[in-house]
Structure formats: C-alpha cells, structure tokens
C-alpha cells in the first residue's frame, strides 16, 4: 500500500514537472541568439533604460490619475468639494499655460546691445547687423530656457506662451503683438541653479552674444523669488475643436 501511494505521488509530481518543463522549453520556436558588439549592447542597454524610465513615468501618471479619480469618487458625495477641486485644477492649468500671474525661483537675464549708441563705429553694415539683438537671438534664448526646464518665461513684461511670437519689427521686437525694445530682461521660473548653469554654459547660445563680433552685453542672475505676469488676453479658440475619440 505504501509503495502504491509513493508511486501515485511520484507519478503526479512527474506530470507536474513535465508540464513545467514543457512550459519552460519552447520546443516550437527556437530562440534566436544575437551577438552584439559593445556599441550595439550599449545602445540596446540605453534603449532599455529609456523604456524603463518611460514605464516609470507612465506608472506615475497612472497613479496620479487614479488618485484623482479616487478623490472624485470619494468627494462625489459632496458636490461642492468636487467643484472646488475642479476649479483648483482649472486655475493650475491656467497658470501653467501662462494666463495667470505666477512666482517662484528662477533667473533673470539682462541683455543690451549698442543700438542706442550714436558712435560712428556703429555705422550701418554687416558689423552693425551683428551688434544688435535680433528676434532670432531672443528665440534662441527662449528655446534654451525651455530646454533647461523653465516653467514660465517672460520677455520685457510679456509672458511667453505657446501662442507667443517673437517677431522683428524694425528696431523693435514684437511679442504677443506688443512692441518691445532693447535692453531686454528675460525672466524665467524654474530650477534657478540648473537654469543659470545651462544658460552660462559656453556651448549654449547666450555666450555667443559676447563674442568679439557681437559684443552684446549680458548678465545672468539667479533669484529666489521672481514674479511673472500673466499673458493679457485669452487664447482664441475660433477654429480648433476637440477630436472626439
């Protein structure tokens, strides 16, 4: 009897192992082995790390939305609280998109050219063109600031939003349809140390303004609290409408 019992157990266990083995070994498809050289391995590894961080970010996003959903469900017994929550979020979105005053740590960039200088050496010509600040210069600086993680940017009191243009209007620049003139003060809210380091990096655009052929004066100053005004006016939405999914 005891022998029988053992046989049954061993038989059952063997079946289980057999199933596990066949699950683990793919008889059907052969796994292809690919040999990678160091660079390919590095690239693949970087890709893996990138995807992992993307997955992490998506997971965070999921948690964030899940929290929000739970909050709504939890608060749904009390209509007013939900309303307040929605209002808060709208306000936050409005300030993030640039239609509300915001403040925080950041940097202040001051740039001044010599277009007000009546010196004879500033005669018209190529040299003169080099030595004044153009709309493209401001665009490069704004671009660099965004790349460095600036969350809000303002040029001479004009909040730069996703709809802002930086336009050349002769001796003026146009931002948000407003004429502004040198000297320019560009303020940006974000990680002030990161922003300052990035803007002062010799490889980035701002430093090139100081080269001998341009001689444009500039300073970068980190500040603990900067207030950036809202973009006046409202974004127009006459033609765009949501895509229904």
């Amino acid at each position: 009897m005891k022998n029988n019992e053992a046989t049954i157990f061993v038989f059952a266990a063997s079946i289980i192992i057999g199933i596990l083995v066949s699950l683990n070994i793919n008889f059907g498809k052969k796994t292809e082995r690919i040999f990678l050289d160091a660079k390919q391995y590095q690239d693949a590894y970087n890709l893996k790390v990138k995807y992992q961080s993307e997955i992490g970010a998506l997971r965070d996003q999921y948690n964030h939305y899940n929290d929000k959903l739970n909050k709504y469900i939890y608060l749904s017994k009390n209509g007013e609280e939900v309303l307040q929550e929605v209002k808060d979020e709208i306000n936050r979105n409005i300030s993030e998109t640039g239609y509300k005053d915001v403040h925080g740590p950041g940097i202040k960039i001051y740039i001044e050219d010599e277009s007000n200088n009546d010196d004879e050496s500033m005669s018209a010509g190529d040299e003169y063109m080099y030595r004044i600040i153009h709309n493209t210069d401001i665009m490069y600086i704004i671009n660099d600031l965004r790349a460095a993680g600036a969350e809000a940017i303002e040029v001479n009191g004009q909040r730069v939003t996703d709809r802002s243009e930086v336009y050349c209007l002769g001796s003026f620049l146009g931002i948000n349809g407003i004429k502004i003139a040198t000297p320019f003060t560009i303020t940006a809210i974000g990680n002030k140390d990161a922003l300052k380091t990035y803007m002062e990096d010799p490889n980035n655009f701002l430093k090139s303004l100081g080269l001998p052929h341009r001689q444009i004066f500039f300073t970068v100053e980190a500040q603990d609290d900067i207030t950036i005004k809202a973009n006046e006016g409202q974004p127009k939405a006459n033609y765009i409408s949501n895509v229904k999914k």
Binding site: T7, F11, A12, S14, I17, G18, I19, V21, L23
Partner: peptide
C-alpha cells in the same frame, strides 16, 4: 513510472500551450 509521468506532463504542456 516517473518517466511515463514526465512524458505525459510534457505532452500535456505542449497541448495546453500555456505560455509563461
């Protein structure tokens, strides 16, 4: 009996095609 069981298990696993 163990070998018979093993074979049956492998066949079962192949037929069921459960992928881990």
């Amino acid at each position: 009996i163990a070998i018979v069981g093993l074979l049956i298990g492998i066949l079962l696993g192949l037929v069921l095609k459960v992928n881990i």
